[in-house]
Design a protein around this nucleic acid. Sequence first.
DNA 1: TAAAATTGTAAAAAGGTTTTTATAACATCA
DNA 2: TGATGTTATAAAAACCTTTTTACAATTTTA
Lengths: 355, 355
Amino acid sequence: MVTETGSITIHNVAKVAGVSISTVSRVVNGLDRVAPDTRHKVKTAIRRLDFHPNSRAQALSRKRTDTISLIVPDFEGQYFSMLMEGAHEEAQANGVHIMVLKAKSSEEKIEAVTRLCSQGRTDGVILMLSDLYGDVLKGIGHINSPLVILDQDVHSWRLDNILLDNRIGAFEATRHFIDTHNVDDVFFLGGSEDNVDTTARARGFADALKSIGLNAKGRQFFGNSYSYDEGYHLAEEKIFPLINPEKHYGVVAANDDIACSIIDALMDKGIRVPEQVGVTGFDDSDMAIHRRLKITTMRIPTKEIGRVAVRMILNRLSGRVSEPAKVVLKARLIVRDSCGCGRHDNSIPGDKHGK
Amino acid sequence: MVTETGSITIHNVAKVAGVSISTVSRVVNGLDRVAPDTRHKVKTAIRRLDFHPNSRAQALSRKRTDTISLIVPDFEGQYFSMLMEGAHEEAQANGVHIMVLKAKSSEEKIEAVTRLCSQGRTDGVILMLSDLYGDVLKGIGHINSPLVILDQDVHSWRLDNILLDNRIGAFEATRHFIDTHNVDDVFFLGGSEDNVDTTARARGFADALKSIGLNAKGRQFFGNSYSYDEGYHLAEEKIFPLINPEKHYGVVAANDDIACSIIDALMDKGIRVPEQVGVTGFDDSDMAIHRRLKITTMRIPTKEIGRVAVRMILNRLSGRVSEPAKVVLKARLIVRDSCGCGRHDNSIPGDKHGK
DNA sequence: TAAAATTGTAAAAAGGTTTTTATAACATCA
DNA sequence: TGATGTTATAAAAACCTTTTTACAATTTTA
């Protein structure tokens, strides 16, 4: 029983304190009652030997790793950063760790989740599903660890689920133009029609139009991706020709990247933004404020998503919750300048700043 | 020995295959030779029972968690994303996992590293040190797991170390203005003087000036942080007054945020960028291309840093390497428009685009 | 052909905890 | 004072592997 390796174990502590290992364990974990005198002896020995329980042995014995896995399609953008921020905060506060994995394709996702769980390497999995999900969830099948699905409504699968109400978000952005700015018309410019965010936001835009008796048809345009250059061309080709200089418009962009490109494209065409055309973004990313014309955008409570996701896993581990939980978080309109609400003197070509 | 829980263990496999557990282990790990016939029996049983080795038990027995910890001050920006990208790629390729922790203060860093290591929760630690490091490394003291330090030169501590040559990067950006654009003068605008990146880049700028017999004094300015608004005001207050409309200047910004704010501030003052004043950034972040005037910037091989860091840990674990390794990576100049190299017709107020 | 080496497998030990069971010491009640 | 409870601790079992040791069976060498 003599450990020749350098590490101090519960056995060493027991010997020094003159008690059994089970007593040491009880002192360390503080669950069971121990005589004050004994407790003191053990604590002294622990301090003297600088004993730290071996987490690997604890994991085996407790059947728990104190690790939660976060699986995302990629590590880019603020969404991931904020998700991490929230997840880490909640994890840290509860003494668990976050393991991060990237899985883009359905196969990769299935493989990652099943491997992590069947190996018992993680106590729970947070899986971000931005695209199709049926085959992924079917592929995963039954697992014994808690699983939280992000970003995609997986109703009927009886899984913990966190969603963002993109529809309402876009609805509000659109209504902002209608209600506050009294625009003559409003357009939507999205990324790919395959993207769940874009489609949900397009739906919100359409709903807002419907609410005032208009049809979205001919007012929304899509590209192949969320890129600046593509957004720029789309704005040039689709939006610009529809602009009547006498009128006042609003453009709801599916995200901040696209909002940037729309603003630049229209300004390059000589359109005054936001006077003639107001623009709103989505995501409240860095670029919304790293510009002369600060972008009005929908802020997504991403950090909250991360926090809630970890909380859900912990709840399930504690066994307190039984029914699958579904949390829908709402985006919030951050009013800045690009919609026309803020200072009006900063983005007008040839204005008093001397251009 | 009958496990009542649902999980399949090596014992179940052994029983079904009619062999001992050690034989199953040898088949699974494939280290020792096993008779073809026995191997087949075992493999069949494994497949039939859908056995997966319990990683917690493996961790205890092998004294290794197949987990590498990445400790960063925060999760924001492309630097973190790219670091993760590289680290995950290398980790995935070697069957290990990445655990991510946030530690801002020195105390948090010390606490995180020592706890992870003394508990045996990780096989190695990648620690990003952007600020002072002496007290952190002293606080950490001796640990038994491999430790790689990022971003800060910790010579004399005999630790694996990965650095970015910020000095050379800024030197090259500065020389680009001098050599290619033949500017009449050049300025540097940084973040906080406490920030190691800013100071190293300022040094590179100064070295470039010295190389042509000039002094950096009066040509470099610092703020309190890396923020857009502060950069904007600094550019207004410090750079603008120095600009002679008849002359041609270059401004080296300590990062892309500041480059954005300089460009906007100068343009708002009626200065033509890049014709009168060229600007370069640093980092090649998103915002460098999400603008009308694409920013010339120094691209940092961040992904490579992540990859190399993991590789260093793995090398050390394998025991093949003995001496501490030090890798210095270089930033690369990405030439776009803001320095004056690209198209010149896009950012001029009142140009042919009709403004 | 006896001795030695090799091969294939079983049995046991080790890894460091937690948790259950057992036991001793002591207090409480009838 | 003997039965009953309570408390504090020790001992042992369990968690599930990997790895070492031991031992037969077989092959090779002298």
